[in-house]
Each structure stands twice: as C-alpha cells, then as structure tokens.
C-alpha cells in the first residue's frame, strides 16, 4: 500500500450555537464533523462526498486549520498539524494548499492576477523579483491563462478563468497536498470539464495529492481514486472508486448512487432508492445509527446502537450493521 501523507484521527469540529440550549440543558452545538478518522495516501485523489451540510467543507478547512478543530489529530508526514505554533504552521502551509469553491469570492478584488499568483512565492521567499515574475508567468501558462493578463484584475475574468487563477495560486509553491473544496460546482458544466481536466493533469504532472470535496458523484468518479461518503458529520463508507461505484454497501451510498442521472440506450427503468424526509439537524443528531431515520433497511438495532466502522477488506470500510 502506498505511503500515508496525512492521517486524520478522531477529528471533531463542533460549533456552539449562541442562545440555544440542547435537550440536556447545556448550550447547543452543531456537530459538523463528529469523530472522523481516515488516511490520505501520497499521490492519490481522495473524494469526499455527501449532501449539503454533512461537513465535507468543514473537514477540508479543519485539516488546513482555516478553522480550529475542536478535537482530534491531523498528522501530515507524521507531524501533528493541529499542535504547531503559528510560525511553524505558516511555514507548513507551503505544503498544504486549498482551491476554493467560489471563484468570485476567493480572489482579492483589489489585487491583480500577477499579484495574486506571485504572493505565495514572495511570502515563502521563492527567489528574486525577476525569478518570481518569471515563475508567475509560467504558472499562468500552466493553468491556461495568457501571461499578458498579468496586470488584470479578477473581475475582468470569467468564472472558469478565475478558478484557474485560484489553482495557479494553490500550486505556486509545489505543495504536496491540495484540498479542492468543490472547485467546479460553481461553474458551468462546459467549463467544469476543462477545469477538472486541468486539475487532473496538474495532479499527474506534479504528483499532487488531492482531497477532492464534491457533491457531484460523476465528477468524483472521473477524478478520484478513492471515495469517502459522509453523512451528518460522520463517515459512512470508504472504498476505492471503482469498488464503491460497482458494489456500494451502505444503504446511504446506494441511495446517493442511484440518484445519478444516467443516459442509457434501452429505456431501462433503474431501481431508484428514494430517501424519505430531510437530513436531520446536526444540532440534534439521531441516536443509534445517524442514518436510521431515513434508511430503507432500518431495523431495531439501528435505532439504539451506533454501528462501528467495519473493514470489508481491500480498504473498503463501511459503517452499517448489515454490511
């Protein structure tokens, strides 16, 4: 098995809710990420999927300490990231970058493209002014932006181009690990493919490791080697991409996969797993298996006992009593 780049152990991210009391009388908390453990291997693209509000983005940001996790461990090449002092943390950030979801919000509107892309180089002392300028132009070409655009402002670009700027900035320092936080969900479908291909190319070229957060299962299938399925702040299933799409075990994964629209020649009516109701509030997570309120296979045990994560072999993990 490949080398571990990151180990995430028992990561928790709770947000207190102001002015709201829980059932036990203590201040209520939103358990956005609730005891999550997984590894990320060197050079892989690990998908993280789930419904809106299941904690995908929160995980990505907690790992990078853009928000401080409540509890847990994030080991990057064996170093506990969460324990680093601010100075060391800032140094380490060269190795861990992020591509944001919103290409309109993630670029400072008062800086030019050149300034935006060259800033990480400047910050981490890449070289002289000339070298930085040269490297910036290289990066722009690498992500498919014309170097003549150096002095332009972000608002002069389309969503896809802006996302390319964001990508160039993220890979400027040759990081080992990049969190891709729904990098294409804000883009038009036609542009999505281009940006996804760009990200895939860069990943292969520079041997990057991605944590690819998305709710688009087709995109995930296309780009990811392994996939984690999350529900309400906890991992439901982890498996290799092919395995997961071919043989989903968890009822939630099955439901998600059956929701992918498909074009087929025969007018075959696919078996569609329909989930009832909405995602329960993360303030008030159901006892037992947190999916039991919507699970089509729910039994008595699911209502009382939280299922442990079972190893089904070959790195296929699943949190279901009936796996």
């Amino acid at each position: 098995m490949a080398e571990k780049l990151l180990e995430i152990n028992n990561l928790r991210q709770y947000f207190p809710v102001k002015g709201l009391k829980g059932a036990d009388g203590k201040p209520a908390v939103v358990k956005a990420v609730d005891d999550v453990t997984f590894d990320i291997y060197k050079g892989e693209v690990l998908g993280l999927v789930g419904e809106s509000g299941c904690g995908k983005t929160t995980i990505g940001r907690s790992i990078l300490r853009l928000i401080e996790p409540t509890d847990g461990e994030v080991l990057f090449n064996g170093i506990d990231v969460l324990k680093l002092k601010s100075e060391a943390m800032r140094k380490l950030r060269q190795e861990m970058q992020i591509v944001f979801q919103d290409p309109y919000g993630c670029l400072d509107p008062r800086k030019t493209v050149g300034q935006l892309i060259s800033r990480p180089l400047e910050l981490h002392r890449y070289g002289t002014k000339e070298e930085i300028r040269k490297r910036t132009k290289e990066l722009m070409e690498l992500v498919g932006l014309r170097p003549e655009y150096y002095g332009r402002y972000p608002h002069e670009f389309s969503g896809g181009q802006r996302q390319r700027i964001g990508i160039a900035r993220a890979i400027a320092l040759n990081p080992q690990f990049v969190v891709c936080d729904e990098p294409v969900s804000a883009l038009d479908v036609s542009i999505q493919a281009q940006v996804i291909n760009l990200m895939k190319d860069l990943q292969e070229k520079f041997d990057l490791t991605y944590l690819f957060i998305s709710h688009d299962l087709r995109v995930v299938r296309y780009i990811c080697d392994r996939v984690i399925v999350m529900y309400l702040g906890r991992i439901m299933e982890i498996a290799d991409s092919d395995e997961l799409y071919a043989r989903p075990v968890h009822p939630y994964t099955k439901a998600l996969l059956s929701a992918i629209p498909e074009v087929t020649k025969e007018r075959r009516v696919r078996e569609r797993v329909r989930l009832q109701g909405d995602v329960p509030s993360p303030i008030n997570i159901p006892g037992g298996c947190r999916f039991h309120t919507r699970c089509p296979q729910c039994q008595e045990i699911c209502k009382t006992t939280e299922p442990p994560i079972k190893d089904l072999g070959d790195g296929h993990l699943c949190a279901c009593h009936f796996a």
């Binding site: 970058q97 993630c106 670029l107 400072d108 910050l123 964001g166």
Partner: peptide
C-alpha cells in the same frame, strides 16, 4: 474567502489586516 485564502497561504495576521482587509 479571499481572507481565508490569505490565511491558507500563510500570511501573518497583521499583514492580512493591512494589505487585504483594510484596502477592501
């Protein structure tokens, strides 16, 4: 998010304040 991006790059807080937040 562009402030989050600056944090992710490893900018110092004071620099983020004066070169990103205040100009905006």
């Amino acid at each position: 998010e562009y402030v989050a991006a600056a944090v992710a790059l490893g900018e110092k807080k004071s620099r983020i304040l004066f070169s990103t937040v205040i100009p905006n």
